[in-house]
Nucleic acid binder design. Structure first.
Lengths: 234, 234
DNA sequence: AGCGTGTTGAGGAGTTTCCCTCAACCCGAA
DNA sequence: TTCGGGTTGAGGGAAACTCCTCAACACGCT
């Protein structure tokens, strides 16, 4: 009983990506889902997908396991989750000119369907886990299960993967961040200088370095960038 | 079997707050949690809490059911979830001078403990559901269960409550939003004017109205405000 | 001691944005 | 039809920001 909760606990405790994967498989295959994609994302990027953690299965019906780049290029409904706050089902429909992917409330009948589970965090969209198959269980129950499994799997995977990477440490110095925060709060440079006990020149210099470091042209853009990278609070 | 998944499905299908509440209670009371708080939040506000959906139980050990304002004033560890991406346990410890709340990995023994479950969405933190009790089950299993239950309950409650309210429609006009987006992307007013086919004056006027409407002093602040209200993308 | 980084500050010469007022046009709602 | 909101545009002047270079000091590390 409560096997799904056990699966989540197992995923959370996993020490390798393959352990996560097999836990996800053993839960979702019986429900009809045998293709998986997991990636980190940020609404910032043009192509949305940041880096792919896991692609598995025959995603485009050609009988071959697809690789990461191919998935991104064909990426069917991914963009849709810029508009949603919750997991959604999609289905592939065949039309006169080629195949199309559509977001649906409940996918019916045979064909190629899937569930996209976005994962959110402090800074908004952080990634997603996608499940698909040709004969899937699309009940509310299953949606709840995969929502939970998908989120747990993504967080666990990110924890493992980020740990190995040098990790994009904060690229702003404490002072620079502090000044930028005040600017984002609507203060002018002169006020900030006064309240931090600095000269206006220093405040200006800090901001220039911020723009330099973030590689942006204006302070306005720096604010947006800093917000989405979690450098300053929204 | 899978009673927790059933509970989530029941919560999602609830048509009243009290239905959500009783579903939450029947799941969490057996686990030792008999005090609940649910509220919407935004990292924006000074006091963090936006509006309270549900407060129930003896939160401050005075044998009385606490009301919303009281909870906010005493609000123990709420601020902590500005720093976290996942649910966390906290515990109340008695010290020489009064009581204190601490975030802990696993609360042990008798006393007053709780689990805070933040709920995230497109725009970051959106709310939270908090569970507490004096003799709680604090296993990884239970944390997984309440994470799922809490998120589902919050979303369901918000769906019900927001539906009744006039709903804070977008406070920017399409054109204003468009101009602000470009500024946030780092373009200067002159460039924006050129690419939108407007005069620089018009761009400037749009931005002035944006500041006016959002009630802020600088465009930098307007960007942050627009981002956190979901008016423009991060 | 020498090196890199962070923090602080300046001079001078820009460019850009902000502020205020005024006005025309379109469009949908009362 | 009048009214309000959205969009477009202007003039003139003030304030704020950006860009360039240069320099001092503290701090930790090799």
């Amino acid at each position: 009983m409560d096997r799904y909760i056990e699966a989540v606990v197992a995923i959370e405790g996993s020490e390798s990506l393959s352990a996560i994967q097999s836990a996800v498989r053993s839960t979702s295959v019986p429900l009809g889902y045998d293709r998986f994609v997991m990636f980190s994302a940020s609404p910032a990027r043009e192509d949305l997908v940041d880096s792919i953690y896991w692609v598995e299965g025959d995603w485009f019906g050609k009988g071959v396991t697809v690789d990461a780049e191919t998935y991104v290029r064909h990426c069917p409904v991914t963009r849709n989750f810029l508009n949603v706050d919750e997991p959604f089902f999609w289905t592939k429909v065949m039309s006169a000119r080629g195949e199309k992917y559509r977001v649906v409330r409940t996918p019916r009948g045979p064909g190629f369907h899937g569930l996209q589970v976005p994962v959110f965090g402090r800074t908004g969209l952080e990634g997603a886990m996608s499940f698909a198959g040709t004969r899937i269980d699309a009940s509310a129950r299953t949606r709840a299960v995969l929502t939970m499994i998908g989120a747990a799997a993504f967080r666990a995977a990110r924890r493992l993967i980020e740990a190995h990477e040098p990790n994009g440490a904060s690229s702003l110095s404490p002072r620079e961040r502090e000044v930028l925060r005040w600017v984002a709060a609507g203060r002018r440079q002169a006020d900030i200088a006064a309240s931090l006990g600095l000269s206006e020149r220093t405040v200006e210099n800090h901001l220039r370095r911020v723009r330099l470091r973030l590689g942006v042209a204006t302070t306005a853009q720096a604010i947006r960038l800093a917000i989405r990278s979690g450098e300053i609070e929204v």
